[in-house]
């Protein structure tokens, strides 16, 4: 138990937390955008999975940044598809989201088998690329805290840094630009922005596209940095955990960051624990992120219900 505590308070563990948080954070930001626009995006999981496979396959033939962009576009395209069926054909957004998830679970295995010539499990035979890590050797030169900072912040994926800045970017767009105001207005009370002449459906369309784009980046990070290569069902519920993080994050980008960090922490814990806690079976350790999500969701919902009502959530 003591060595587990020591491991948790080491810089290598915090490094792992940052790594496991990155895809969660990107997906949570995506979920936040669509949730603020009034549509709970349950398809984050499927979007991540499809984008991960797209990025892996593209990275075989193109440089890494093209692959990441292709993942982004795959997610954005799925967001546009959801918007088409939800806004134009009036389908329930949750059913549309689950159609995307079902498409993703089977469709990625199908596409993987096609791309690898029959392998339905992994893309191990494809020479896919990784997102380059950003090394910051100058951090070590800082006296006292230098080595710690170096171990913590050097060697992360480019997308990790992007995700960090994206929290600020999303906050800026949401609270300092008219588009953010439109988006929040559309989610809160669509009749008012409509009366003010704001194109409500267009705002919703772009919020779903943006949501998909972030989920796509999350998938690319997962399959090109956290793991290099695609495995079937590799998202393993991360999209749904991100959905929980959206609800937990009080619909604010900073809240989303904190919630993603919380779940990232427990995911990292589940990675580290098998080496330190021998009496606990591996399967039980793997349930930790899911158990924590349920508990956190219940505790937080209880608090926020008493404080105020989350509009989209009580409606469904």
């Amino acid at each position: 138990m003591i060595d587990l505590l020591l491991a948790v308070f080491s810089t290598t563990f915090l490094f792992t937390v940052i790594r496991t948080t990155t895809p969660l954070l990107l997906a949570t930001l995506g979920g936040l955008l669509s949730d603020l626009g009034g549509a709970l995006n349950v398809a984050l999981e499927g979007m991540m999975l499809i984008a991960a496979l797209t990025a892996v396959i593209v990275s075989v033939y193109a440089p890494w940044y093209v692959a990441v962009l292709s993942g982004l576009f795959a997610g954005a395209l799925l967001g546009a598809l959801m918007a088409l069926f939800h806004l134009r054909f009036k389908a329930d957004i949750i059913l549309v989201g689950f159609a995307v998830n079902i498409l993703a679970v089977g469709g990625t295995v199908f596409a993987l088998a096609m791309a690898t010539g029959g392998d339905k499990g992994t893309s191990i035979n494809l020479p896919s690329k990784a997102i380059p890590a950003i090394h910051l050797p100058f951090l070590e030169a800082i006296p006292l805290v230098g080595p710690v900072l170096f171990q913590l912040f050097s060697g992360h994926s480019t997308l990790t840094w992007f995700a960090g800045f994206a929290v600020f970017g999303v906050w800026y767009v949401l609270y300092r630009t008219p588009y953010g105001l439109w988006l929040r207005g559309v989610g809160e009370y669509p009749t008012a922005p409509e009366a003010a002449g704001i194109p409500v459906n267009k705002v919703r369309l772009w919020s779903l596209i943006g949501s998909g784009a972030f989920a796509g980046l999350a998938g690319a990070q997962l399959a090109m940095f956290n793991y290099v290569g695609f495995t079937r069902d590799m998202t393993a519920g991360r999209g749904f955990i991100a959905l929980g993080a959206v609800l937990l994050g009080a619909r604010h980008p900073v809240g989303a960051l904190l919630a993603a960090l919380l779940f990232g922490f427990f995911e990292a814990l589940a990675i580290v624990m098998p080496n330190h806690v021998r009496w606990m079976p591996g399967e039980m350790i793997q349930t930790i992120p899911f158990v924590v999500t349920v508990i956190a969701l219940i505790l937080f919902s209880y608090r926020s219900r008493r404080a105020s009502q989350l509009k989209t959530l009580t409606r469904i």
Partner: peptide, 25 residues
């Protein structure tokens, strides 16, 4: 959890799926 605490049943039920599969495993 939804009736008493207002927790989204979508997320909690999906999490319980993963937990049940791991427990059976």
């Amino acid at each position: 959890a939804k009736a008493r605490f207002g927790a989204s049943e979508i997320v909690s039920s999906l999490m319980l799926n993963y937990i049940a599969i791991l427990v059976v495993n």
